[in-house]
Design a protein around this nucleic acid. Structure first.
Lengths: 199, 199
DNA sequence: CAAACTGTAGGACGACCATCCTACAGTTTC
DNA sequence: GAAACTGTAGGATGGTCGTCCTACAGTTTG
């Protein structure tokens, strides 16, 4: 059946996912993953031909995980504005991990860019999934102009908050920025008093 | 005299600085630096006792370099608003490098956080130098409330732009975000129409 | 000139890493 | 029950890394 092998494969991916987030991709060795999963080092090559292949599987799993999560959000909230608030509040819900390890997506992309890794172009698709979802919510809110730009801006705002929070290990900064980001969403995106400021 | 030795020490720091930016700290080996400088590998330990000591020297050199740069900006522009524009335009001036390697400060902090490196608390001082300078300029502009928060917010905005630009290797995104950041500076910080939005 | 110091070179080390290979146990298929 | 396949274990390999050590050339100091 290969059921047992597939289950182990999933456990390897899950362990690698967490370790890549906590320690970074390059800094995580096969031994690290093997220790967590509880299998032998060399046996890895039965499931994955190379370390890059694990990275590829982790990126795929993360993208799938994000899509599932966003579907759940869509079910949980009918109001697109509530969904966007929930997106921002993700920062609060994950504040401990963010303080310690930053953003799983942003920090991986930063690392892959540094090592000139070809898979950067796959990794940044994790952002794209969020972006597309954000665009849908903005559309539902009646935002007509510059929807894609606003969505990308949104993501960049979140990334900035995470980078600085992580660099200073400062949860308070994160908390006050979350408030400000919500205010921006209210004042500048949903109910722009004057003309649309996004140029 | 030790003059020759000191000169070489400076060349090592400069080479390490550039390589750490382009390749990351962990991913840069002694051999890499030695090749660039043109000296033997083992001889490193005459000038630096460990790799961490080079990192320490690089951080120190960067902080000194930033301080010199900001002093030059202060001389070049008398208007604090012009100085802040020039700060934002730094993104445009460095857009090629940002696309390829991100922010020298942000990406280093991200990496050090991942490896639980003690020197993160020294590295984030590079941000602090910018923050303090920003606070001075904001004060000169007559901003009285939340000056520190606005300065940190400023830095986070820049970091977000850099992270996304780097992840997507997208200079156009950087360019449009620069425009938006200037608009924010004008509308929300310098001439806030309604009440001060920074809470 | 001899001794001491400064600076450089390059090899040796032990550790770790990704990868490969072979051996072997368990299951399935014929 | 023999053959084939699935899955696991663990050692071997070759490379790279940070670090250490010794040798040596050049300069300075006595």
């Amino acid at each position: 059946m290969g059921n047992k092998g597939e289950a182990l494969r999933q456990r390897i991916i899950a362990a690698a996912d967490e370790l890549f987030y906590q320690q970074g991709y390059e800094h995580t060795s096969f031994s690290d993953i093997a220790d967590v999963v509880g299998i032998s080092r060399g046996n890895f090559y039965y499931h994955f031909k190379s370390k890059d292949e694990i990275l590829n599987a982790v990126i795929g799993a993360r993208i799938a995980g994000i899509e599932v999560m966003l579907d759940e959000w869509d079910e949980k909230f009918t109001d697109p504005l509530q969904r966007l608030y929930y997106y921002i509040d993700m920062l609060l819900r994950a504040q401990e991990e963010i303080c310690l390890h930053g953003c799983p997506i942003g920090s991986l992309c930063t690392e892959l860019a540094k090592t000139n890794h070809e898979m950067l172009n796959d990794a940044n698709k994790m952002f794209t999934v969020f972006r597309d979802w954000l665009m849908v919510q903005l559309n539902l809110l009646g935002v007509k102009k510059n929807v894609k730009k606003i969505a990308m801006h949104f993501i960049a705002r979140v990334q900035g908050i995470v980078t600085v929070t992580n660099a200073f290990e400062d949860k308070e900064f994160l908390q006050q920025e979350v408030k400000q980001l919500k205010k921006w969403l209210d004042d500048e995106v949903v109910f722009p008093e004057s003309s649309n400021r996004q140029s």
